[in-house]
Design a protein around this nucleic acid. Structure first.
Lengths: 346, 346
DNA sequence: TTTAGCAATCAAACACAAAGAGTGCTAAAG
DNA sequence: CTTTAGCACTCTTTGTGTTTGATTGCTAAA
């Protein structure tokens, strides 16, 4: 049997199982879904369907006399084919509106508020990562001296993001040197992506500036550090909530969770791999020794027009309430764009 | 019996029990400490001592036929009276030296490196909190305009800390306004602690500047936000390591741990309450429903002369290796001061 | 004061039975 | 051909009683 060709009843059975399991976190028996969910068959009939759904890999059986549990594939089919839109309650809508109403100076703050709100409404752990360095265009680089031996570098990007760093030197730095720096860096980097501040760029700067190698080295080092940090910056919210989930009774699951949150590279890869237009659902595979085994990640891009302002996501159990989460995300995503439009126009 | 008047043998027995428990995480039986630890008595003798140590509250008994476990009071006595200095291995010393050698631009970075190193050597979770706002003296406030409607505020404090924030306005701001701001804030705030940027100060500024109430409000709001953030800033390292501890097999303990890390106010209170000169040991009380029940916190102040540069600490199980942790902390604390001396002199 | 000896205590481990949940299969009914 | 009732079978969970082993507390002797 082709996996796509589920007859209507089997679809309903799968859907009922997934939804039941999301609610109860217990294996679902054939008897428990004979009524409701648009079904009205005997448990024997359901059982036959279940056996087939298992044989094509959509269901798992913890052991003979337990019910069935959706497999990662089962969840995927459910999310792609069976999920029906959930509607937010009026309170939820009001709550979100109220939260996103705040005035912010940096887009980054707005992303954070949205991430926090998402966690508050869904009760899952949420995460925000900034846009990658190659997506951020430098609008201005400004060097400001703070006393004789201290210099601040400010980088303003088109995402409204402003990054600063302080550099201290062993030697004095003059105002004219600061001017040179401002000229040099701006003519060279304005309009380029953040990621352009790299080795070739450093070499060029070195070739242009013949004095104070020490100063130049310190500057380039520090700027590289900002870019690096910017590329690896992860904001986390509501991690503690996850520990109330029933799956966290298993120490193994809890440990996988903290390992997952700690594996920033893995997280960044997932968060940056999603499609820009859509809500992306990553359902943890069944691989026994993956951190992701028990979890799913759902992400969406915070955008303004075609500007990438970073990715916001949720990390929950595979058994998470996909319909609700996706509905909340869609709403927040829409609101973020509305608000941004207003801000642009102001 | 007075708690302080333990005879020599009882001290040794208590010490042996604590150390054995630290090693094994299992209740300690009378039989297991008849030899070694400077003891050479029969188990019956040890048993008598144990019974008395229990009656004065230094030991607990999970149940009749288990061994004994130190109580919070027992740990306290051990730490205050019995602990003998541990020595670091040559490798450990080298490792720390190497890590702290790095050149930093902000003291904050040095604190972070020290905190990370502390976690790496001890394998416990470590934490750093910055100095409180009333301990940080403002050396300069600088307003820098970034385009017509964007202003950056930089605050340099005597701890070398530089805080920046960006403020966006709905109206244009002129260079002369920026000059006024610089004058006003600097004459008023230079030499004052960060915490002085408060309501009375805001009122004063309002009374002096008669134009652009909107701009002034935005500025004061933002500055308050920095100070607030600065006061609540917690840096955490190695939280994941704790999950390998045997005590984390109990979900209750794991949950207490994440709750503890999440309860920033509680953490800050503990971290800020320590004595400046010393290494401070907070041993979790026996109170059943406290987050701290299973944990101890050890802190020391990162200082330079009499300047408070923040507090660094460790959060581990009550059963943690106090001798080792304290030894490492003492060494790092000393090194931080040495390095700072060098940095001051450069 | 210390220790040997021993009964008493209690968790942990084991074994076994019974109960309960749920399946898979078969054969009959629709 | 699809659906369903019926029932044997499987496997976990729960309960119970038993044994084992660790460890203590007490007593009486060294």
């Amino acid at each position: 049997m082709k996996k796509k060709d589920l007859d209507e009843r089997k679809k309903k059975v799968l859907q009922a199982i997934v939804e039941e399991y999301i609610n109860t976190a217990e294996p679902v028996s054939s008897g428990s879904i004979t009524k409701g969910h648009g079904l009205d068959y005997s448990s024997a009939t359901i059982r036959n369907d279940m056996a087939q759904l298992e044989s094509i890999g959509f269901l798992d059986k913890p052991h003979t006399s337990a019910g069935r549990v959706p497999s990662a594939e089962g969840y995927r089919y459910y999310v792609n084919e069976l999920l029906k839109e959930d509607n937010l309650s009026l309170e939820e809508i009001k709550y979100i509106q109220n939260k996103l109403k705040i005035k912010v100076n940096e887009i980054e703050d707005l992303t954070k508020v949205a991430t926090t709100t998402l966690s508050e409404i869904t009760h899952y752990t949420t995460v925000a990562v900034g846009p990658k360095a190659d997506k951020q265009i430098i609008e201005e680089i400004k060097f400001v001296s703070l006393g004789q031996r201290m210099l601040m570098v400010v980088i303003v990007t088109d995402t409204g993001l402003v990054k600063e760093t302080i550099i201290k030197f062993d030697e004095d730095i003059t105002e004219s040197q600061v001017d040179t720096l401002n000229n040099l860096f701006n003519t060279r980097l304005r309009g380029k992506p953040l990621s352009k501040i790299d080795k070739p760029m450093a070499d060029y700067i070195f070739s242009e500036v013949h004095y104070s190698i020490g100063i130049m080295k310190a500057i380039i080092e520090q700027i590289n550090k900002i870019v690096e940090e910017e590329n690896n910056n992860i904001f986390l919210e509501g991690a503690k909530k996850s520990f109330d989930l029933p799956e966290f009774k298993s120490m193994k699951v809890a440990k996988n969770f903290v390992n997952l949150l700690d594996a920033k590279d893995e997280m960044l890869e997932i968060f940056n791999s999603g499609d820009a237009e859509d809500i992306n659902v990553f359902i943890g595979d069944d691989d026994e020794n993956s951190n992701l085994k028990d979890f799913s990640i759902i992400t969406f891009k915070h955008t303004l027009g075609d500007k990438d302002l970073g990715t916001i996501g949720i990390i929950g159990p595979k058994r998470m309430d996909y319909a609700k989460v996706i509905a909340v995300m869609k709403y927040i995503s829409k609101k973020l764009n509305e608000d941004n439009d207003k801000k642009e126009g102001m």
